[in-house]
Deep mutational scan, measured.
Amino acid sequence: MDPFVVLVLCLSCLLLLSIWRQSSGRGKLPPGPTPLPVIGNILQIDIKDVSKSLTNLSKIYGPVFTLYFGLERMVVLHGYEVVKEALIDLGEEFSGRGHFPLAERANRGFGIVFSNGKRWKEIRRFSLMTLRNFGMGKRSIEDRVQEEARCLVEELRKTKASPCDPTFILGCAPCNVICSIIFQKRFDYKDQQFLNLMEKLNENIRIVSTPWIQICNNFPTIIDYFPGTHNKLLKNLAFMESDILEKVKEHQESMDINNPRDFIDCFLIKMEKEKQNQQSEFTIENLVITAADLLGAGTETTSTTLRYALLLLLKHPEVTAKVQEEIERVIGRNRSPCMQDRGHMPYTDAVVHEVQRYIDLIPTSLPHAVTCDVKFRNYLIPKGTTILTSLTSVLHDNKEFPNPEMFDPRHFLDEGGNFKKSNYFMPFSAGKRICVGEGLARMELFLFLTFILQNFNLKSLIDPKDLDTTPVVNGFASVPPFYQLCFIPV
């Protein structure tokens, strides 16, 4: 058959498939802009700032609406009420993970971030239990974070109060905490193996944040037939998995079943207990991918939040002064901060919360999916439909947070200066898919920041009023603009 005829037939089939998918069930789905064949609503979305586009569309179609990214149908949730109703009140029905062709290629359905069903539930339950087990290797997770915080302070001392970009050092600290939990080992910041790991993690975040990856996920045929950065992403992930597998083999040879040292040991012990169960989800494949998931999810998000926190503290020296006064009063100079201190430091706690609220790190979270046909607000959402959640619409709700575009710790303080919780605080998402490392991340943010401010004054290279804190939105995360500062020993 003539190649031209084959091409026309293929394009015609794709067009018909697109029209059929977009028209099927439209009477039951939430409203939304009319999609174009094949490309859907992509032309109506700013790929570099999806969150802003969703906010604009919500003003037209309401808090629940339908979009098509290519052939992929998505239902968008915008605003606290619908997000709570879906992710919390109907948590089980909305607990699936959205379709990610690239991740599915890399992870093969294993791990904790992109798995679904029984596998996801069992691996998540085990990971939560293990991360909360403060007795691994007779050292609590808090001990590990405190140790890394001391190392971080010593690295900052080496800058000798000269101007520096904190990106690298602030990236090393949370990565080392995860390494300590998974591998029972922290690395020197100049260790070549550690630097290679950091390089792969950072490069992957840069790649994932590009519009090209959005295109690959919406048109998965590209993955096999086109060159691009997605190939580098898959190569980096394969490198990390190979490295983790080597460490798993080392653990198998040296493990003491009665004295687990780290996450890998705990997983291997669980595998041993379930070795007679042919349906067990505790396999080497799941261990390797879960460890890679924890490394990827637990490094860049925390380091970016820390980097943004220091920029905001530079911009608002009056806030920094209040935090340091609270540190001096509650902790002093002669001991290290600990998590028990947080309950006695409402202002510092409010500042950490406000940093996370203000920066809105992951504006749309990772997409969910419905696990069955769901009736939601008089609409029928078919099983498997991807759910896109606007966390921006919750964290920047102007009824809950007056002047949401302003950095103001009073958003989390009552009139008496006591810490005030808010149900709208969802930087880790909400419901059954809430970030498994939430507790660890909150511990790291509090301890790293208090250790830094206990030991250093922060000095800006320019007038604080002239510092730009506008986030650089890159399609996946909101990151701070480049800046330098000086760490002046107190």
Rank of each mutant, 00 (worst) to 15 (best):
E85C: 06
D414R: 06
I45L: 14
K322Y: 07
R357K: 00
V490R: 15
A292G: 09
L461T: 14
G91H: 09
H230C: 08
L201Q: 06
F126H: 09
P363S: 03
G98Y: 04
M198A: 08
R119K: 12
S280A: 07
S18P: 08
K322W: 05
L312P: 00
F448V: 06
V83S: 03
D341M: 07
V113G: 07
L195A: 14
L449E: 03
H230V: 08
T301Y: 07
G298S: 08
L170P: 03
T364L: 14
D262I: 00
F126I: 05
A350L: 01
Y61N: 02
I359W: 03
S209F: 07
F376Q: 00
G111W: 01
L413N: 02
Q356S: 09
L294Q: 01
K158G: 11
P174V: 15
E281F: 10
F4N: 02
K118D: 10
I462N: 15
L170G: 02
K28A: 11
K375S: 10
R186N: 04
Y347A: 00
E326I: 01
V319C: 10
R206T: 09
M426F: 09
V479R: 14
A350P: 01
R26A: 13
F282E: 01
F187Q: 06
R144G: 08
L197E: 01
S162R: 14
V6R: 02
V330C: 11
F226K: 03
T450D: 04
H78A: 09
E318I: 08
Q324M: 10
R108M: 04
I462R: 10
S162W: 12
P427I: 03
K399L: 11
Y347R: 01
R377H: 13
F407H: 00
D341I: 04
P101N: 08
N259T: 06
E444Q: 00
F282M: 07
V374G: 00
E155H: 13
H251Q: 02
Q193D: 11
G298W: 05
L128I: 14
P471I: 15
N403L: 09
I327N: 00
L170R: 01
A292H: 15
E354D: 02
I269A: 13
Y424K: 09
D463Y: 09
Q356D: 00
R21D: 06
